[in-house]
């Protein structure tokens, strides 16, 4: 057992944990920060990605003691960090993921968004290939990455001054409100013959 002095999402925290605990265990089971996901738990999938001094790092294979003296940012810290810099609402990356439907089950999403945020902090205008490379350590088993990459591209475009794109679920292709149910025909469950 050891006492860890951590800096997580701007908060200085003192927490006791066994020597062999990883950072993801301390975050989830000592600090209650369950936004960091425990996926494969052996450094393959990227679901446990956190930012260590701004760099994406896998919390599931990082001994917790290694985080001492470094700044840890988890998904819970993205919005406060954005607001602290004078922004409003959620981090633009989170907002873009929402509007691009860049998730299904959502398990990979915290790691994806942190990898994307780290990239955009380093390079405000990455091209598609750079985005793909930056997200290549995060696996998604649902959506197939297209919308995830589009979400990062949207963040980049809007940061460069492009018009905000309204959420996909609010408008259909003609700009009309989407009907709640198909009009005209009503499904009865009865066949025609």
């Amino acid at each position: 057992m050891r006492t860890l002095h951590l800096l997580v999402n701007g908060d200085r925290l003192t927490v006791a944990a066994p020597d062999h605990w990883t950072l993801v265990e301390v975050l989830r089971y000592r600090l209650g920060l369950t936004g960091t996901k425990q996926g494969c738990d052996k450094g393959d999938c990227g679901a446990c990605t956190v930012l260590l001094d701004g760099k994406p790092t896998l919390a599931c294979i990082l001994p917790a003691a290694r985080a001492e003296g470094h700044e840890v940012v988890t998904i819970e810290g993205l919005r406060p960090a954005h607001c602290a810099e004078g922004g409003e609402g959620t981090d633009p990356v989170q907002d873009a993921f929402d509007r691009c439907d860049a998730l299904q089950c959502g398990f990979c999403q915290p790691g994806m968004m942190l990898s994307a945020r780290a990239l955009l902090n380093e390079n405000a205008q990455p091209d598609r290939e750079t985005i793909q490379e930056a997200l290549s350590g995060n696996l998604c088993r649902c959506t197939g990455y297209t919308q995830i990459i589009e979400a990062v591209e949207l963040t980049v475009a809007e940061a460069a001054g492009a018009d905000p794109v309204p959420p996909a679920w609010q408008v259909d292709r003609d700009g009309e409100d989407l009907p709640l149910a198909p009009t005209g025909e009503t499904a009865t469950g009865e066949g025609e013959d």
Binding site: L58, S115, G137
Partner: peptide, 9 residues
């Protein structure tokens, strides 16, 4: 080597 997060550590 490996992926971006692993190369950072």
């Amino acid at each position: 080597v490996a992926g971006p997060q692993l190369r950072n550590v």
